[in-house]
Design a protein around this nucleic acid. Structure first.
Lengths: 391, 391
DNA sequence: AAAAGCGTTGTAAACGCTTACTTTTCGAAG
DNA sequence: CTTCGAAAAGTAAGCGTTTACAACGCTTTT
């Protein structure tokens, strides 16, 4: 190793110099840059962050030195020093079951991924990175990573209630937390969710007003999921207001997956009770499985049974029959969550505690309506704008 | 603020003490823990990491203090001190186009997400977190986040060639890099990819041997994508070896999306040239769009044209007709990538430079074969085992 | 009974950066 | 040609850990 006397930095310099054939064994630091540029480390730091006054000539010297050394600031040291990490954590429910590959692959088609993408894009736009953290009983590392997160990220976005209220409150005492798809009643954190009530109401009305149904069914998502619970409750109340029947036997338990929907419908078909005229499903994947099971039993959709989904994922537009569904923008959900979190980080105060995003009924053929004339690729604009609710 | 003389830590202690009504304004540090437990910070650190010898009684005192203070080690400080961050970076191509929601939503159904999930699960199992980083021209933050990553993560996984060879080499001089879905010829980094050659060969053979086709077509993925290029090239060579025709007019350009596949097929249908007997598509989404366009033109699949996909995403099993495709395990891809990266981090040397994962032909109805009797949910086990290739 | 050895604990120096505070520099005014 | 003041640059003290090294018992050995 080669050291300039009184020189604290590493030997990265030797790469450029001709004093020996030493190999770089670590990244250059601001000490290296400072030495090469002939200034102090404070000046290097200032040039780097362009906060305070650095004379243009000096700045250039520093920037040249940085480029020559291929200097990249160590963001960890930065974080330690400034307390700011420029990292946002995204916690989601890991549904993988042991060695069951399917669970991961199916789950990956869930809305979660779209949310993650939206969040990542928005985070990047704000200058943040996104740290992913799967959690849940089935997750290999359990809850541990979550706790350590508080020292790594500036804020946390939690999908689909990974924690109970108490834990969230605990967490949000340490760092800002945004809850996604929660029930929206948490006092501890900001909540972002879609308008399940409005969605299921418009769906119920459509079934009643347009298709004059008298008896309906519902296929749920994963047990205990706030979105699934909200969708079922909203659907039921809207349906019952309309004087239509939602019998217990027609409430099927699924788990957000196609396989779950298929299984639930197969089991329902073994029962003696006559089928309702329509099954509203908690998401699109479930609807796909439900339709498959109905077809397998020789029933036609929509001639014999009507089916609807929720989410409007791209692929189901190409299905036969094209799926009637509720459109929500998953990426918007992620984006808004990040925006809210960043706003909290900046102001440390946000006027709004709950943000409710709009949904939109998309009528296609699976509910018995006429085929649309456009190509599936044409139809993708959300027409409604976000609603804000303060509480 | 309240300070014990000579006490360096913050005032988090006051929460528990009864000397005042001060509010916690920051997280407790090992100084707080050390003081409360009546030991030095070194002992706290040792108890925390359980590396060297700490007397059980002492350890207990420390652990109790930690619990009482709800101490969570600051991983950033840890990272600075030890040089280890326990974070892996995952760089992917951000395909979002400006305000076009569809691009994100469709893209999110791509295989990428499954890979990410697999990587996250495996990373967690190794004790690492996953830092997501979208990159590409369309990404809001451009390339900048990528460069800063080198100071944040211990290793990098790059999906689908975000960078050119030179940049990868540059990066991998700083930290270990694993390339996913690359061409596998990078000397700078470890590569993990699927066996596109074997896959397309078996597909071609099936078409030729079982369905006796004389003329075939291909629908590509996004231009320049290594996987798409490899699939097209392999398919062509296998097809031509069999003496079957793949005309230029039957090579359609798409972009991995359903809309792209639909558009490509619509354009093809306006041409005068007779259709080939089969279209092999670069992925499942594309195949779905292709089938849609064929149906819209009054053509039947598989009676009039055969179609195949690639990936075996769950939803297309529920399609009409169920899609003949090549199964690959996206989550395995992510898992293996993480394993390789972690191994590199541990040994700083890995025997294998390229890892090729197996694929499997899954014959369903879209290629004209008979319907399977099982439920789609039943069929999901990979039968082959990973192949390792050293170079 | 003193020395040696060993297991435990403490002290203090990094790690690479930011930033409050201090010193130097430089140009304009006196 | 000083003097003064602001602007620019430097000094050094953290940020919260880890860890090499020193110090301190205690038991064991001679």
């Amino acid at each position: 190793m080669y050291f300039v006397s009184g020189y604290r930095g590493n030997n990265a310099l030797s790469l450029l110099g001709n004093q020996g054939e030493y190999v770089v064994d670590s990244q250059p630091t601001i000490y290296d840059v400072a030495q090469r540029a002939g200034v102090s480390i404070a000046t290097v730091s200032r040039a780097l962050n362009s906060l305070s006054s650095v004379r243009p000539a000096t700045r250039d010297k520093v920037l040249v030195a940085m480029r020559e050394l291929k200097f990249v600031p160590n963001s960890v040291a930065r974080g330690l020093s400034s307390g700011k990490h420029w990292i946002l954590g995204l916690v989601f429910m890991q549904t993988a079951v042991d060695n069951n590959v399917l669970a991961v692959e199916e789950a990956s088609l869930l809305y979660t991924d779209i949310v993650i993408r939206g969040a990542e894009a928005r985070a990047a736009a704000h200058g943040y990175s996104l740290l992913l953290c799967g959690a849940g009983e089935n997750h290999p590392a359990g809850m541990t990573p979550l706790m350590n997160l508080t020292g790594t990220v500036d804020g946390l976005i939690m999908l689909d209630r990974v924690l109970v209220e108490d834990e969230v409150a605990d967490l949000s005492r340490r760092i800002p937390v945004v809850l996604l798809a929660g029930r929206g009643d948490s006092s501890a954190a900001i909540t972002v969710r879609v308008d399940n009530e409005q969605a299921m109401r418009s769906l119920a009305q459509h079934f009643i007003d347009v298709h004059h149904v008298k008896r309906v069914g519902f296929v749920s998502g994963h047990e205990g999921s706030p979105d699934s619970v909200a969708r079922e409750a909203s659907f039921r109340s809207a349906i019952e207001e309309g004087g239509v029947t939602l019998a217990d036997v027609d409430i099927l338990k699924s788990d957000w997956t196609s396989a779950g929907g298929e299984g639930a419908m197969r089991r329902r078909l073994t029962l003696d009770a006559p089928l309702p005229e329509v099954f509203a499903c908690a998401n699109d994947q479930t609807a796909v499985g439900v339709i498959y099971a109905l077809h397998a039993a020789g029933l036609r959709v929509p001639e014999d049974v009507l089916v609807s989904g929720f989410d409007d994922i791209t692929l189901t537009r190409y299905f036969k029959p094209p799926l009637t569904t509720i459109r929500q923008s998953g990426s918007l959900l992620g984006e808004v969550a990040v925006d809210a979190l960043v706003a909290t980080l900046d102001n440390s105060e946000l006027a709004v505690r709950t943000i409710v995003l709009p949904t939109e009924l998309v009528v296609r053929e699976s509910c018995g309506c006429a085929a649309a004339s456009e190509s599936p690729a044409e139809i993708f604009k959300m027409t409604a704008t976000p609603t804000m609710v303060v509480n």
